[in-house]
Design a binder for these strands. Sequence first.
DNA 1: CGTTGGCCCTGATCGC
DNA 2: TGCGATCAGGGCCAAC
Length: 354
Amino acid sequence: MPELPEVEVVRAGLEPAVTGAVIRSVVVYDERSLRRHAGPSEDFVERLEGRSILGAVRRGKFLWLPLSSALHPASSSEIQDIGRYGQNDHPKNAERPPNTLNGADQTPEFPKGGAVEEALVVHLGMSGQVLLRDMERPDDALLRIRLDLVHPAHGGLRVAFVDQRIFGSMAIDQLVPTPDGAAGGAGGAAALVPARVSHIARDPLDPAFDDDRFLADLRKRRTGIKRAMLDQDLVSGIGNIYADESLWAARIHYDQQAATLSRARATTLLAEVRRVLGRALAEGGTSFDAQYVNVNGASGYFSRSLNAYGRQGEPCPRCGRPIVRESFMNRGSHFCAFCQRVRNRQTTLLHPPS
DNA sequence: CGTTGGCCCTGATCGC
DNA sequence: TGCGATCAGGGCCAAC
C-alpha cells in the first residue's frame, strides 16, 4: 500500500518527466476515480487539456501537479512550446472563452497580483499507480484515467492512472497559501497547498514539520497511539505498514493510549518513524503486496526489511518470540506481544540509584 | 467537538 | 475445474 516513501518515489519519478509538459488529451475510463473531483468527468477533461504541468509536489500521501493558468499559457515561452508541437491541435486552447470554467462563476480567473492557481491532485489510495508509458504501448489492465502529454524536450508521453480498488483518485483543486508560510510540500518551493489537502498535517520528513507541536498534540489525544499515528490531520504519510514497523522499533503497543506516552518515548517513536520512512525511501518503497510500483512499474525492495508487518507467526527479530497479528480499526496490527506491551503507568523512578 | 465505527471497492487467493 | 468466500486498508463521514 502506498505510504509516504512510495508516493515520494512516484513524485520523484514524475517530476523530471512531466514538468514543462503540455496536457494534450485526457481520457477518463472510470468516473469513480474522480471521487474527489468537484464536477463531472467532462469538466475534469476540459480543464486539463491545453494546460501545462509546472512540477510535482507531495505532502504525506497526497501528490499534486501544479498547473499553468487555465485560460492562457503562463508565459510566452510556454506559448512557443505549445506552438512547436502544433497549436492547431488544441482548438480548445484558443477558442475557450474566458470566465466559463465553472459555469456561472463570476470570479475573475486572473486578478492582478495573483491568478487563481490550480493543481491536479493525485491520491493513490490502496492500490493506485501512476505509470509513465509510451504512446504506443497497449493500455494497462485496470487503467482508470489516461493523460497524454507532450514535453518540449522529451516528446510524447503518457501518464496512466491505474487503480484496482478505486480508493485512489485524481481531482483538480485550487491552491491556497500554507498557514505557516513554508513550502507546501516536498518538491515545490511555493507556499501553496491544494485546498482539500490543506487540513493534512505536514509529514515527518518535511523540514517545516514542528516536532514540539506534534508532541504536544499527541498528549491531547484520547485514543490509541496507532490510531493517532494514522490520523493524517496529526501527522501525515504514515500508513498501516510503517505504523507497525515504527511501533515495533520503538517497542510500543499499538493500543497504548497516546496521551500516556512519556515525552521521551514519544520522541523515540517520532525518531523511529523517520528512520523507517527514510530507509524505505532509500530502498525505493515497499513491494509487500506487489501493488506498489514506481512510475516505471518496478517494485521496491523494502519488504525484505520488514520486522513486524505481515510476519505473524514468525519470530520477532529482537527477542525470538512469535509476532502476533490482531485486527484493529478494520486492519491488521502486527507486533511482538513481549517487546511491545501497554504501559499505562508512568515508569518514573521515584528514587533513582545514587 | 473529539472520537469512533462503518463503508467504499475489486482482483487475487484460498478452500471445497 | 469452478465458484463463492475471504482478504487487503486510506480517507471520509455520519453518528455518538
